[in-house]
Amino acid sequence: MDRSYKELLKLRRFPHTWCPGCGIGAVLKNVAMAIKELDWNYKNTVAVSGIGCSGRMSGYMNLDAVHTPHGRPLTAAETIKTVRPDLNVIVLSGDGDLGSIGGNHLLHTSRRNPNITVFCNDNEIYGLTGGQAGPTTPKGTKTLTSPRGEPYSPLRLGRILTQQPPYFYARTSVYHLNHFKTCIREALLWKGFSFVDIISDCIELNGRRLGFKTAYQMFKWFDQRFHIVEGERDHLQEDELGIAKALVEEVPKPAEKIEVKPEIPIESLKPFTLEELQQFDGSGGKPIYIAYKGKVYDLSGSLLFQGEKKMRCHIAGKDLTKDIDIAPHGEDLVFKFPLVGKIEG
């Protein structure tokens, strides 16, 4: 078994401070494994974390890391990605941080679609502060602040984040390990805002109140509550684990038509001398001809020359090669007009 992911963890700080059986340790370990598999390292990866138990994840990773104020990991991550687009930015945070305090940032960061990956450790409770009902607590759950059962419906992060493409939303759990690893890997490889909602256990502050004795009993409870759905989905139901992703359908632009004028061989052109050319100055119903680089062009169709002998500074019926070279416009203005002859001599 490949254990090289340990290079990405600060093992001298271990054992970590989370409770026995906490799912954040599994999230930390599997994210480190996935990053190592993709050969990302401390040179090209930044970890950003918010507040909560899961905020300590960035501190245990051997990466350049930012520990941001309450609810602001997404703003910091988007800033880092904007300033240094070459870095891979991952956000390691929890549901209380991303869903309630930083809920507004979640809406608008997902709307702007920066190329960052968010790992949300969703333990369905405010774990750090002692087990209060959080934004993702299911209806009817007994918590510290709702001893008769949470009366309100939870925030459905999946529905919020999949409201308009492009989006990448994956829901997985720490029990379904293979699915968990696939989701992490696909999210890291997704170009754009990707969000992995990891259903995790908080045995000490949530599980005990619900009647579970060990973390593994909570894992089995996840197995009963959720089932994995395969394939590409637009949305995930509340009891489904899977990946919902969509790209913006790009409307193909109509190809611009390029008109190719048939090139006339210079020998077949009508020869003009400079004296002959001077007669064609537009006076008396004659066409307006000018010479440019040895060729004569008919500028009768030009709006600027219409009805006038001269146009501000260019004089009709002359060789204007030097004038056009110093003019603010380019020579392509002349090439729009029909070629009628060449200058002799």
Binding site: F14, G21, C22, I203, T214, A215, Y216
Partner: peptide
Amino acid sequence: EIYCKRCLICVEV
């Protein structure tokens, strides 16, 4: 034994 917190996941899994 230093890292282990005796959460018993390994025993039950």
